[in-house]
Computed example of a mutant assay.
Amino acid sequence: MTLKDFRAFFNNQLINLYPKKEVDAFFFRTIEALLQLKLMDFFTNENEIIKEKDLQTLKTIVSRLQKEEPIQYILGATEFYGYQFNVNSNVLIPRPETEELVSWVLEEVKNTEEELKVLDIGTGSGCIAITLKKELSYLEVNAIDISEKALETAKNNANFNQADVKFIQHDILSDKRLDCTFDIIVSNPPYVRELEKKEMKANVLNNEPHLALFVEDDNPLVFYERIADFGIKHLNKNGLLFFEINQYLGQETKQILMEKGYKNSILKKDLFGNDRMIKANL
Protein backbone atom coordinates (compact mmCIF):
# COMPACT_ATOMS: atom_id res chain seq x y z
CA MET A 1 0.00 0.00 0.00
CA THR A 2 1.31 3.46 -0.88
CA LEU A 3 1.15 6.43 1.47
CA LYS A 4 -1.55 7.93 -0.72
CA ASP A 5 -3.61 4.74 -0.53
CA PHE A 6 -3.15 4.55 3.23
CA ARG A 7 -4.40 8.10 3.64
CA ALA A 8 -7.56 7.16 1.71
CA PHE A 9 -7.96 4.07 3.93
CA PHE A 10 -7.34 6.17 7.06
CA ASN A 11 -10.01 8.70 6.05
CA ASN A 12 -12.58 6.07 5.08
CA GLN A 13 -12.22 4.28 8.41
CA LEU A 14 -12.54 7.38 10.59
CA ILE A 15 -14.55 10.00 8.74
CA ASN A 16 -17.84 8.92 10.33
CA LEU A 17 -16.39 9.20 13.84
CA TYR A 18 -14.44 12.46 13.73
CA PRO A 19 -14.60 15.81 11.88
CA LYS A 20 -12.47 15.87 8.71
CA LYS A 21 -9.99 18.39 10.15
CA GLU A 22 -9.44 16.12 13.13
CA VAL A 23 -8.97 13.07 10.90
CA ASP A 24 -6.37 14.97 8.87
CA ALA A 25 -4.60 16.04 12.05
CA PHE A 26 -4.57 12.44 13.30
CA PHE A 27 -3.16 11.23 9.98
CA PHE A 28 -0.25 13.64 9.80
CA ARG A 29 0.50 13.22 13.49
CA THR A 30 0.58 9.45 13.00
CA ILE A 31 2.88 9.36 9.99
CA GLU A 32 5.22 11.85 11.64
CA ALA A 33 5.46 9.71 14.77
CA LEU A 34 5.71 6.33 13.01
CA LEU A 35 7.39 7.14 9.70
CA GLN A 36 9.14 10.43 10.58
CA LEU A 37 7.32 12.16 7.73
CA LYS A 38 6.12 15.73 8.13
CA LEU A 39 3.23 17.19 6.14
CA MET A 40 5.35 18.36 3.19
CA ASP A 41 7.22 15.04 3.17
CA PHE A 42 3.95 13.26 2.55
CA PHE A 43 3.19 15.15 -0.64
CA THR A 44 6.64 14.44 -2.08
CA ASN A 45 6.53 10.77 -1.05
CA GLU A 46 2.85 9.87 -1.41
CA ASN A 47 3.55 7.13 -3.98
CA GLU A 48 6.10 5.42 -1.76
CA ILE A 49 5.22 1.87 -0.68
CA ILE A 50 4.82 1.43 3.08
CA LYS A 51 6.79 -1.45 4.58
CA GLU A 52 4.55 -4.31 5.71
CA LYS A 53 5.67 -4.07 9.35
CA ASP A 54 4.93 -0.34 9.43
CA LEU A 55 1.61 -0.84 7.68
CA GLN A 56 0.43 -3.29 10.34
CA THR A 57 1.36 -0.81 13.08
CA LEU A 58 -0.46 1.98 11.25
CA LYS A 59 -3.58 -0.17 10.86
CA THR A 60 -3.47 -0.95 14.58
CA ILE A 61 -3.51 2.79 15.27
CA VAL A 62 -6.56 3.16 13.03
CA SER A 63 -8.32 0.39 14.97
CA ARG A 64 -7.60 2.10 18.27
CA LEU A 65 -8.86 5.43 16.91
CA GLN A 66 -12.05 3.66 15.85
CA LYS A 67 -12.54 2.78 19.52
CA GLU A 68 -12.16 6.50 20.30
CA GLU A 69 -8.91 6.09 22.18
CA PRO A 70 -7.07 9.43 22.38
CA ILE A 71 -4.32 9.81 19.78
CA GLN A 72 -1.98 11.06 22.53
CA TYR A 73 -2.27 7.77 24.41
CA ILE A 74 -1.94 5.74 21.23
CA LEU A 75 1.29 7.50 20.26
CA GLY A 76 2.37 7.79 23.89
CA ALA A 77 3.29 11.46 23.67
CA THR A 78 1.97 14.98 23.29
CA GLU A 79 3.29 18.53 23.19
CA PHE A 80 2.78 21.08 25.94
CA TYR A 81 4.21 24.59 25.85
CA GLY A 82 6.63 23.47 23.13
CA TYR A 83 7.98 20.55 25.16
CA GLN A 84 7.44 16.84 24.56
CA PHE A 85 5.66 14.84 27.27
CA ASN A 86 5.03 11.13 27.52
CA VAL A 87 1.42 10.39 28.43
CA ASN A 88 -0.52 7.24 29.27
CA SER A 89 -3.76 6.22 30.93
CA ASN A 90 -2.31 7.06 34.37
CA VAL A 91 -2.21 10.80 33.64
CA LEU A 92 -4.45 13.40 32.07
CA ILE A 93 -3.63 14.64 28.59
CA PRO A 94 -2.40 18.26 29.00
CA ARG A 95 -4.81 20.88 27.63
CA PRO A 96 -4.29 24.32 26.03
CA GLU A 97 -6.11 25.92 28.98
CA THR A 98 -3.41 24.63 31.30
CA GLU A 99 -0.77 26.24 29.07
CA GLU A 100 -2.56 29.51 29.78
CA LEU A 101 -2.29 28.87 33.51
CA VAL A 102 1.45 28.28 33.15
CA SER A 103 1.79 31.49 31.12
CA TRP A 104 0.05 33.42 33.90
CA VAL A 105 2.41 32.06 36.55
CA LEU A 106 5.44 32.87 34.39
CA GLU A 107 4.17 36.39 33.72
CA GLU A 108 3.88 37.03 37.45
CA VAL A 109 7.38 35.86 38.37
CA LYS A 110 9.52 36.39 35.26
CA ASN A 111 11.03 39.65 36.53
CA THR A 112 11.90 38.19 39.91
CA GLU A 113 15.39 36.76 39.77
CA GLU A 114 15.03 35.18 43.22
CA GLU A 115 15.12 31.45 43.91
CA LEU A 116 11.39 31.20 44.43
CA LYS A 117 10.05 27.89 45.70
CA VAL A 118 7.15 26.48 43.70
CA LEU A 119 4.80 23.59 44.45
CA ASP A 120 2.61 21.96 41.80
CA ILE A 121 -0.22 20.02 43.44
CA GLY A 122 -1.64 17.06 41.50
CA THR A 123 1.15 17.11 38.96
CA GLY A 124 0.02 14.19 36.75
CA SER A 125 2.35 14.11 33.75
CA GLY A 126 4.43 16.84 35.36
CA CYS A 127 3.65 19.28 32.55
CA ILE A 128 3.13 22.34 34.79
CA ALA A 129 6.11 21.75 37.07
CA ILE A 130 8.53 20.78 34.30
CA THR A 131 7.52 23.67 32.05
CA LEU A 132 7.95 26.20 34.86
CA LYS A 133 11.44 24.84 35.55
CA LYS A 134 12.39 24.85 31.87
CA GLU A 135 11.17 28.39 31.32
CA LEU A 136 12.68 29.84 34.51
CA SER A 137 15.61 27.70 35.59
CA TYR A 138 16.15 29.64 38.83
CA LEU A 139 12.84 28.41 40.26
CA GLU A 140 13.04 25.60 42.81
CA VAL A 141 10.17 23.42 41.66
CA ASN A 142 8.48 20.68 43.66
CA ALA A 143 5.49 18.57 42.64
CA ILE A 144 3.15 16.19 44.45
CA ASP A 145 0.58 13.61 43.39
CA ILE A 146 -1.34 10.84 45.13
CA SER A 147 -0.70 8.42 42.26
CA GLU A 148 2.56 6.49 42.27
CA LYS A 149 2.11 5.64 38.58
CA ALA A 150 1.51 9.28 37.68
CA LEU A 151 4.68 10.27 39.55
CA GLU A 152 6.62 7.64 37.63
CA THR A 153 5.44 9.20 34.37
CA ALA A 154 6.26 12.70 35.63
CA LYS A 155 9.76 11.67 36.66
CA ASN A 156 10.36 10.16 33.23
CA ASN A 157 9.20 13.40 31.63
CA ALA A 158 11.49 15.43 33.85
CA ASN A 159 14.44 13.26 32.86
CA PHE A 160 13.53 13.49 29.18
CA ASN A 161 13.26 17.28 29.34
CA GLN A 162 16.32 17.61 31.61
CA ALA A 163 14.33 19.46 34.25
CA ASP A 164 15.37 19.35 37.90
CA VAL A 165 12.05 18.88 39.70
CA LYS A 166 11.53 17.20 43.07
CA PHE A 167 8.56 14.80 43.09
CA ILE A 168 6.77 13.68 46.26
CA GLN A 169 3.92 11.23 46.74
CA HIS A 170 1.34 13.00 48.87
CA ASP A 171 -2.44 13.01 49.32
CA ILE A 172 -3.55 16.63 49.48
CA LEU A 173 -6.85 15.56 51.09
CA SER A 174 -4.97 14.18 54.10
CA ASP A 175 -3.95 16.29 57.07
CA LYS A 176 -0.29 15.43 56.61
CA ARG A 177 1.96 18.48 56.27
CA LEU A 178 5.12 18.91 54.23
CA ASP A 179 8.25 20.07 56.02
CA CYS A 180 8.79 23.17 53.86
CA THR A 181 7.08 26.36 52.68
CA PHE A 182 6.64 27.85 49.23
CA ASP A 183 6.39 31.17 47.44
CA ILE A 184 4.00 29.86 44.80
CA ILE A 185 1.47 27.04 44.82
CA VAL A 186 -0.15 26.09 41.52
CA SER A 187 -2.73 23.39 40.94
CA ASN A 188 -5.03 21.95 38.32
CA PRO A 189 -6.99 19.64 40.63
CA PRO A 190 -9.99 17.42 39.80
CA TYR A 191 -12.97 19.70 39.22
CA VAL A 192 -15.46 18.08 36.82
CA ARG A 193 -18.73 17.27 38.57
CA GLU A 194 -20.45 13.95 37.97
CA LEU A 195 -23.41 15.85 36.51
CA GLU A 196 -21.11 17.27 33.82
CA LYS A 197 -20.14 13.86 32.44
CA LYS A 198 -22.84 14.17 29.79
CA GLU A 199 -20.94 17.14 28.30
CA MET A 200 -17.75 15.14 27.86
CA LYS A 201 -16.59 13.17 24.85
CA ALA A 202 -16.38 9.39 25.03
CA ASN A 203 -12.64 9.42 24.35
CA VAL A 204 -12.12 11.33 27.61
CA LEU A 205 -14.67 9.42 29.70
CA ASN A 206 -13.49 6.00 28.61
CA ASN A 207 -9.74 6.57 28.73
CA GLU A 208 -8.50 9.36 30.99
CA PRO A 209 -8.09 8.69 34.75
CA HIS A 210 -11.29 9.53 36.63
CA LEU A 211 -9.26 10.08 39.80
CA ALA A 212 -7.74 13.17 38.16
CA LEU A 213 -10.99 14.40 36.60
CA PHE A 214 -14.09 14.03 38.75
CA VAL A 215 -15.49 15.26 42.04
CA GLU A 216 -18.80 14.52 43.74
CA ASP A 217 -21.71 16.80 42.88
CA ASP A 218 -22.38 17.58 46.55
CA ASN A 219 -18.80 18.72 47.28
CA PRO A 220 -17.29 19.89 43.98
CA LEU A 221 -14.79 22.31 45.51
CA VAL A 222 -13.27 19.92 48.02
CA PHE A 223 -9.79 20.14 46.47
CA TYR A 224 -9.86 23.93 46.36
CA GLU A 225 -10.81 24.12 50.02
CA ARG A 226 -8.10 21.67 51.07
CA ILE A 227 -5.42 23.29 48.91
CA ALA A 228 -6.39 26.73 50.21
CA ASP A 229 -6.03 25.41 53.79
CA PHE A 230 -2.72 23.80 52.82
CA GLY A 231 -1.59 27.16 51.42
CA ILE A 232 -2.33 28.94 54.69
CA LYS A 233 0.17 26.61 56.39
CA HIS A 234 2.71 26.32 53.57
CA LEU A 235 2.75 29.62 51.68
CA ASN A 236 5.31 32.25 52.63
CA LYS A 237 4.19 35.82 53.31
CA ASN A 238 2.68 37.35 50.13
CA GLY A 239 2.85 33.90 48.57
CA LEU A 240 0.78 33.33 45.43
CA LEU A 241 -1.84 30.65 44.81
CA PHE A 242 -2.87 29.77 41.24
CA PHE A 243 -5.74 27.45 40.31
CA GLU A 244 -7.23 26.06 37.15
CA ILE A 245 -10.95 25.90 37.89
CA ASN A 246 -14.35 24.60 36.82
CA GLN A 247 -15.76 27.22 34.46
CA TYR A 248 -19.18 27.05 36.16
CA LEU A 249 -17.84 27.59 39.69
CA GLY A 250 -15.58 30.63 39.34
CA GLN A 251 -17.40 32.89 41.78
CA GLU A 252 -17.84 30.05 44.29
CA THR A 253 -14.11 29.29 44.17
CA LYS A 254 -13.28 32.97 44.57
CA GLN A 255 -15.61 33.14 47.59
CA ILE A 256 -13.83 30.22 49.27
CA LEU A 257 -10.47 31.97 48.93
CA MET A 258 -11.87 35.21 50.35
CA GLU A 259 -13.42 33.43 53.33
CA LYS A 260 -10.10 31.75 54.11
CA GLY A 261 -8.24 35.06 54.16
CA TYR A 262 -6.73 35.22 50.69
CA LYS A 263 -6.50 38.67 49.08
CA ASN A 264 -6.45 40.26 45.64
CA SER A 265 -8.15 37.31 43.97
CA ILE A 266 -8.43 37.61 40.20
CA LEU A 267 -10.66 35.44 38.04
CA LYS A 268 -9.38 35.00 34.48
CA LYS A 269 -10.98 33.60 31.33
CA ASP A 270 -9.35 31.09 28.99
CA LEU A 271 -8.99 31.35 25.21
CA PHE A 272 -12.53 30.00 24.82
CA GLY A 273 -14.02 32.77 26.99
CA ASN A 274 -14.70 30.55 30.01
CA ASP A 275 -13.77 31.37 33.61
CA ARG A 276 -10.76 29.06 33.99
CA MET A 277 -8.09 30.45 36.33
CA ILE A 278 -7.81 32.19 39.68
CA LYS A 279 -4.87 33.92 41.32
CA ALA A 280 -4.78 35.09 44.94
CA ASN A 281 -2.24 35.79 47.66
CA LEU A 282 -1.95 35.67 51.43
Rank of each mutant, 00 (worst) to 15 (best):
M1H: 10
F6D: 05
A8L: 14
N11Y: 15
Q13K: 12
F26E: 06
F26I: 08
F28T: 05
R29G: 14
T30S: 12
T30I: 06
A33Y: 14
L35R: 05
L37I: 01
L39I: 14
D41V: 08
F42L: 07
F42I: 10
N45L: 11
I49S: 14
I50S: 04
K59A: 03
T60R: 10
T60I: 09
V62G: 11
Q66Y: 11
E68T: 09
E69Q: 07
Y73A: 01
Y73N: 04
Y73V: 07
F80Q: 02
F80M: 04
Y81V: 00
G82A: 02
F85H: 03
V87T: 02
E99P: 15
E100H: 03
V102D: 02
L106H: 10
E108C: 11
V109T: 08
T112D: 15
K117P: 00
G126K: 08
E135K: 13
Y138Q: 15
L139Q: 01
V141D: 02
A143F: 01
A150T: 02
E152M: 11
T153K: 03
A154C: 06
F160K: 15
F160P: 10
N161A: 05
D171S: 07
R177E: 15
T181Q: 13
T181F: 13
F182R: 03
D183I: 03
V186E: 08
N188W: 06
Y191P: 11
R193W: 05
E196A: 00
E196I: 01
K201Q: 14
N203W: 12
N203I: 08
N206V: 04
E208V: 05
L213Y: 03
P220L: 06
P220A: 00
E225Y: 12
E225N: 13
A228C: 06
D229T: 12
F230I: 02
N236S: 10
G239M: 05
Q247T: 11
Q251F: 06
T253W: 07
T253R: 07
I256Y: 11
G261M: 03
Y262Q: 06
K263P: 14
S265H: 13
I266L: 11
K269G: 00
D270T: 05
D270Y: 11
L271T: 01
N274W: 12
D275R: 04
M277P: 15
M277I: 00
K279G: 01
A280G: 07
